[in-house]
Design a protein around this nucleic acid. Structure first.
Lengths: 195, 195
DNA sequence: CGTTCAGTTGACTAAGGTCAATTCCCGTGG
DNA sequence: CCACGGGAATTGACCTTAGTCAACTGAACG
């Protein structure tokens, strides 16, 4: 279980054995039920989690509209990264899409590890960069692609998402209405299998 | 001149005198002419600059289309931050919109300073966070606002931009065509001053 | 068997994309 | 000083597509 967490971290940079042992000793397993909030808006995110089981949705209320920011799926991280690194209250809420088991490491523990182990700090920095580039890619996607192309991109990058997440959440994530998504899907259906 | 650079940095976190002295000793002044490239795509960005004079544009060629990423204006930073922090080749190109004078500090110097001065490292981390949140805000802007609203947002946040940058660059930055921008401007004109 | 909610569909409107033509502005050279 | 050239900006005509509001379908659940 913990080894899967390690494997994910090491996709960024290697961690030496000693650092990992210490890291592992800080890990806590938490379980949540479907629709439960892992992090409510207004609270500071003090963890980085590994989604051993289940899927989550991160949303923000902007001008009264609920906007889906990101979906963290099984076997990936789950955190509100900005709140975590800056240790300021989150504007976003993380909720479970289904029952979840999450391995968590908290902020204080991680800071200790950063100070103590060069290899951990390197992983941390790489993750920050990764988070940054993800945002950038998303901006690019909005800049050069229309809704249909964004949907196709999502389909290509994250086909599992469509099965795991209700479509109206996907629509919000793509910045369109559920109706539009439905029509886009219909259009594409005709193209791929023109009957 | 250098003090203005310092003031900008200290908007993120205070820098102690000793750290600043050392930082200042590394600063180099470089000058560029209008349309000159400060950083061509493919080269690794090894500097963070302070735009003492002039304005710059950062663009990327995506699927054959030139997409404007950001404009760095006088008295602000100029860098390709992802390339800088990860020390990997930049996908983006930085060009001068007019003649520029830039105070630059290079990567190696900065790393030295980070290792030596806690206050410098703190500033560095805060800047990374700032860059991250900027991208996030831009995503939000695309998610909840249509082109007209994005233009209005830009107008509110960065009114100088409209005077300093040709409109077709603004359009690309907003993710729309120059024609659309022109029509949006016309529409708004009628609203604000109905003759 | 009815309630609820996600998803779809229809009708209509508005807004952006595309292509082409035109105007405006500015610098250059005759 | 004026005419010309070129790029930016605007405008027009047309098309496509997303938004909106409302109705309907269908599946899940009690």
């Amino acid at each position: 279980m913990k080894n899967e967490f390690r494997a994910l971290l090491e996709r960024f940079a290697p961690i030496d054995e000693l650092a990992w042992q210490e890291f592992a000793s800080f890990i806590q397993l938490k379980t949540y039920q479907k629709d439960e909030m892992i992090l409510p808006a207004g609270k500071t995110c003090n963890f980085i989690g590994f989604l051993y089981k289940g899927n989550t949705r991160v949303y923000e209320i902007v001008e009264g509209i609920e906007v889906n920011r990101v979906f963290f799926l099984e076997k990936n991280f789950v955190t509100e990264y900005y709140s975590f690194i800056s240790q300021t209250p989150s504007k976003e809420t993380i909720v479970c899409l289904d029952d979840c088991q999450i391995l968590m490491i908290n902020y204080e523990a991680l800071q200790q590890l950063y100070a103590k182990h060069k290899s951990m700090e390197r992983v941390g920095r790489c993750i920050t960069e990764y988070m940054y580039i993800r945002q950038r890619n998303k901006v690019t996607n909005f800049l050069i692609n229309n809704p249909e192309e964004r949907y196709l991109y999502l389909l290509k990058e994250n086909p599992q998402l469509l099965e795991k997440v209700p479509h109206y959440h996907i629509a919000s994530f793509l910045g369109i209405t559920p109706q539009s998504l439905s029509r886009i899907r219909k259009r594409l259906e005709h193209v791929s299998s023109p009957k």
